[in-house]
Structures are given as C-alpha cells and as structure tokens.
Design a protein around this nucleic acid. Structure first.
Lengths: 224, 224
DNA sequence: CCTTGATTTGGGCGAGCGCCTAAACCTTCT
DNA sequence: AGAAGGTTTAGGCGCTCGCCCAAATCAAGG
C-alpha cells in the first residue's frame, strides 16, 4: 500500500472515532483496528496522537476554507454573500458532522485551544473586514464580534446539540427537511440583522449602501 | 470531618477539574489530591466516576433551575420575562464557567447525552409551552425549536468559545463590561425576534397580545 | 542480483488508570 | 467499658494506555 493511502486510511478512522468518542476516549489501538493498519504505523506516520489531531484539523480547515471562499465569490451583494457563506458552512458541517464535535470538545477541554485559534483566526479576520466594509458604523448592540459570535453560534449549535435536539423534539435534526428549515431560520434572522445594520433603511437605500461598501471591498481586494 | 463536608469538597474539586481538563483527562487521583481527601473516598461516597459526574450535573441543574424560575417570576410581560431569563442564564454561566465546558464536552462526546437530555428536558418543555403561549401562530422561519436553539446558541457560544474569542479579539470576554455588552446584544436580537413573532405589530398591539397570552399563562399557573 | 532506504510488523515496556480490599479509625448508644 | 456502624486509610490488583524497538518486508536503482 502506498504511504499516502495509509495516511488517508488512518485519518479516515481518526475522523470517525474522534467524532464519535472524542480525543481522549479514542485509543490509537482503536484507530489502528478501524483503519486496518498496524498500530505502530500511526506513530510512524504522524509522530504522536496530538500530531494526529493536528493533521486531522488541518484537513478539515483546508476543505472548509476552500468551501467558504468559493461561496463568498458566488455573489457580489453582501446580504447574498452572507447567505451563501452561511449555507455553505451549514452544508459543510452537515457533511462533516465529526468536525464540530471535535472542535467543540477540544475548545471546551482548553488543551488544544491554540490549535483551533490558529486555524480560526484567518476566518475571523476575513469576517471582520467583510463586516466592517458593510457596516462601518454599527451601533454597539450590533458590534462586529457580537454579530459574528451570534451567527456562528446559531449555525453550529444546531449541529453540536443535534443529538440533544433529536431527543427533545423526537425528530431528526439532520434530515434534509430539518436542515432546510434551520437554514431558512438562520437566514431570516441574518436578514433581520442586516436590516438593523443598515439602520432600518429601505431596500433602495440599502442597495446604495452595499454598492459603496462593495467598491471599498473590491479596491482592497485588488490592492492585495 | 462530616460526610457532607467530604462530599462537598470532592464535588468542588470535580467541578474545577472536569471544567478545566474534562471528564476523561481528569483522574480520580487528581480529584482526591485537589480536595485533600483519600482517593478511595470518592468511590465510597459516589460509587464510580460516572456517578460522580451525575452528581455534579445534578448540582448544576438544581441551581440553574432555581435561578431561572426565580427570574421568570420577576415579571409578567413575556418580552421582559425573556430578557430576565436570558440575563439570569448568562449570569449563571458566568458564575459557573465550568458548567458549560462540562455540558458542551459531554454532549460532543455523545457518551453522556442521556444524562444531559434528562436534565434539559424540563427546561425545553417549559420554554416550549411558554413560547407557544406567546406566539401560537409563529411563521415557519420562527418555529419554536428554531428560536429556542438560536437564543440558546447565542447565549452559550459566548461562554463555550470564550477562550477562543479572547484570543481572536485580544479582549477578555468575561470582564463585567464585555458580559454587559454581550447581554445587550442578545437582548437586542431577542427583541427583534419578538417584534417578528408579533407580526411586526406596533407596541400598542403587542401589548394587547401579551396581555392575552399572560392571562392564559396565569390561568395555567393557578391551575397547577 | 544485491544494496539501500522507506515502510510495515509483532511484541512489549513503563506508567497510569478506575476500582477494590482489609484494616483502622471515629462516633454514638447501651 | 464495650459493641456497632458509619467513615477513612494505605496499599495494590488487573488492565489499558501511548509509545518504542528490532526485525521483517517491500520497491527502486546500480
């Protein structure tokens, strides 16, 4: 077997097991067994269990980054961009259900926060400048970090608490219909926030606003 | 030392360590050392490490329940009630920072979901009937589960991702000012949702609506 | 064909885990 | 004083963990 194939099989098994059981509760022996690979190979290819987690996170964030950037470029109008990015993110989480489990747990445990922060920072910076470009004079109740945290929270909570929501409501929160309903709700709330950010402006006025901010954003883009 | 004192010391240490390191990464020896108690006493008083977690969760949810019920009774008008409950919840999380770490992690790990669900269910039911009483005919984008999940998510994300937010913004998200700012933001968004739930009604009309629903709620209260 | 270096294998080391046991220690009551 | 029952103690059992190692295997170049 080619080495990259071995690495891929180990990462696949790791993805599944870290997602299902968590970093601590998963043993390197479990991973070896599930991937059909000798347990010493994990350390040969990845060095240690911690570095294995890093490699897994790298894979996630690389794919997420590509997905979100693609979504961002689909449209030029900020509100549509926001919707596209949120949809893309939700889709990504739905397709990589283990991802948010892993992130959530490692953030909560506090031990791998640095690994998460390092990979989240680019997204945060992008979101910040983007939001700054749209609403440079947001009121304090709709300050940048607040809005980002809320939107992020609304999206991920559905997935991290999926199993709980399932037990509470008796319905599958990951069915296509449920995901679609969630998507609609989040977009609705985001639309409300947009209306507020534009100071309750009419659609016409809002159009002018985003045209101004779009020009600014594009100037910035071509500059870098 | 009195037995309850021993139990309390063990629970204190458990609270700290489960919050800081997580269930798996904390050993019963750590707990014994931190609480200044013989390690066999943990099993004598609590039976097993899993039951120790249960006891810890019981303590959390008992206190949370008392806190939220008290907040709910401060006012009769739904929008104020919502604000009070959200504030009380945020305060509780701020004072029991380990709580959401523990819950978050155990939910993500999937192994103690039942323990969490069993204790969350009463809150969910309460929130459901409450919201149903206020807005019996909510549009699909503002369906009950959606709104509850979003509000819950907005509140807890600030705490669960606190350490990440701190690193991203360079500011302490748990300072009194930051907590106050967060509180204001969430209340603002909730107010937006309320306005929507009442179909964009004017304040006057809204007043009528909540008076109707208040009567219904109070009839229910006096009935139980 | 033989060498070389990368990859894979089975076996196991040392440490740490949750949990248990038997004896000692306290109160409290008779 | 002595019995009884609820607590506390030191010690350790059986097991699993992450990681390592020496030998085996493989692919490719001379």
């Amino acid at each position: 077997m080619r080495p990259e194939e071995t690495r891929a099989k180990i990462l696949d098994a790791t993805d599944h097991l870290f997602g299902a059981l968590g970093f601590d509760a998963t043993t390197t022996r479990d991973i070896a067994e599930r991937s059909g690979v000798n347990k010493a190979l994990i350390h040969y290819h990845f060095g240690s269990k911690d570095e294995l987690l890093s490699a897994l996170l790298d894979g996630y964030y690389d794919r997420l980054s590509a997905t979100l950037i693609e979504a961002l470029q689909k449209s030029a109008e900020p509100e549509l961009q926001a919707g596209d990015v949120i949809d893309a993110y939700a889709d990504f989480l739905a397709r990589n259900r283990t991802f948010c489990s892993v992130v959530q747990r490692e953030v909560a445990s506090g031990r791998h926060v640095e690994a998460i922060v390092a990979r989240t920072l680019p997204f945060f910076r992008l979101g910040s400048t983007w939001l700054q470009g749209i609403a440079p004079h947001a009121p304090p109740e709709l300050e940048l970090t607040q809005v980002l945290t809320s939107v992020y929270g609304m999206v991920v909570t559905w997935f991290t608490y999926g199993r709980v929501i399932e037990r509470l409501t008796g319905e599958d929160p990951f069915s296509p219909e449920a995901l679609e309903a969630r998507r609609r709700h989040v977009r609705h709330v985001v639309a409300l926030l947009f209306r507020e950010l534009n100071g309750g402006a009419t659609p016409k006025e809002r159009e002018k606003t985003w045209q101004r901010s779009t020009r600014r954003t594009q100037r910035k883009k071509s500059g870098s």
